[in-house]
Simulated scan of single mutants.
Amino acid sequence: MYARAPIPTSEFECLRYEVRDHVAVITINRPERRNALNRRAYDEVECAFRAAAADADVRCVVITGADPAFCSGEDVKEMMTGQQHDASVASLTRIRPEPTPAAVAALECDRPVIAAVNGSAVGWGMELSLFADIRIASEQAKFGELFIKRGLISDVGGLWRLPAIVGPAKAAELLFTGDIIDAQEAFRIGLVTEVTAHGDLMERAMAMAGRIAVNPPLALRYMKEGLRRTANGDLREIGSWVSGTLGRLFQTEDHREGVASFIEKRAPVFKGR
């Protein structure tokens, strides 16, 4: 199941993980980087969902971020420099038979998952919210599939989950433009089920998790499996294509320009190559 030994939850550096009242609470805890994910954080996200799925006491999962953000995507400054960048590109240029391991772990988690989106959920942060079964948003939440702005494509969240949630046309608009939308717009299009006052978000998410967790654990797991089986598309086939395509796109000038313009805080100049 793992390409490496799993990281015990007690040794997490980028996440907080706790179980209370049958609910596993996963909190991305890199607030100084707006909860952007580096390689360690990606690994811990994968291990957190695997841990929840392996724990008989867990009946529901809530994922959130330490304020001020939910997750601002990939830590561009760290991941796109030096050995981290070389390793990322090298792994993606070799086509994998499955999607991003953290995405697989989140999507294969057989417990209901609630995303409590407390702030910006952009790039892979929006992907992470899409892997949840239910999304509740703080009034401060924002959502954006920013991959096109970096000369890349979305992961399986945007390409596989988003159209099923908001409809193909709206998904296409969000993916093609890279527009960022606020919590009220997310509610209007059905991306989130509820918008709450910021201070009430975790209380609302935990209340919903509690309403779910009181139900029979096995029935909950089968219910989630039934939803997965009736969804259109094959996760691993899509993920293989995404990985191969990203491997090519990571080598383009437009990707490098998208990253450079972000770091240099200027408008990008894309050339289609």
Rank of each mutant, 00 (worst) to 15 (best):
A3H: 10
P6C: 05
I7C: 01
S10L: 05
S10G: 11
S10Q: 09
E11G: 09
E11F: 07
L15T: 06
Y17C: 03
Y17P: 01
E18T: 10
E18N: 11
N29Y: 10
P31F: 10
P31S: 06
N38C: 13
E44N: 03
E46W: 03
C47W: 01
C47M: 01
A51V: 03
D55I: 12
D55T: 09
D55L: 05
D57C: 06
I63L: 07
T64N: 09
S72C: 12
E74I: 13
D75G: 05
E78M: 11
E78L: 11
M79E: 15
Q83M: 12
D86R: 15
V89W: 10
R94P: 01
P101V: 00
A105P: 05
A105L: 05
R111S: 04
N118Q: 06
S120A: 15
G123M: 07
W124M: 00
G125F: 04
M126N: 06
L130E: 01
L130K: 00
L130T: 04
D133S: 04
I134V: 15
A137I: 06
A141N: 00
F143K: 04
F143Y: 15
F147L: 03
K149F: 10
G151F: 11
L152E: 08
L152T: 05
G157D: 05
A164Q: 15
G167F: 11
P168Y: 08
P168H: 11
A169H: 12
K170F: 02
A171M: 08
L174F: 04
L175K: 07
T177S: 15
I180T: 14
A183F: 09
R188T: 08
I189K: 00
G190P: 00
E194I: 06
V195C: 00
A197H: 13
L201E: 10
M202E: 05
A205F: 07
M206H: 13
A209W: 02
A209Q: 06
A213Q: 01
A213I: 03
N215A: 14
N215R: 13
P217G: 02
A219S: 12
R221H: 11
Y222L: 14
K224C: 07
K224F: 04
L227K: 14
R229G: 07
R229W: 13
T230Q: 14
A231S: 15
G239N: 03
S240C: 11
W241M: 13
V242T: 06
S243H: 14
G244S: 08
G244N: 08
L246H: 06
G247K: 02
G247S: 10
Q251W: 03
Q251S: 12
T252Q: 07
E253K: 14
E257W: 08
E257S: 09
G258E: 04
S261T: 07
K265S: 15
R266P: 02
R266L: 09
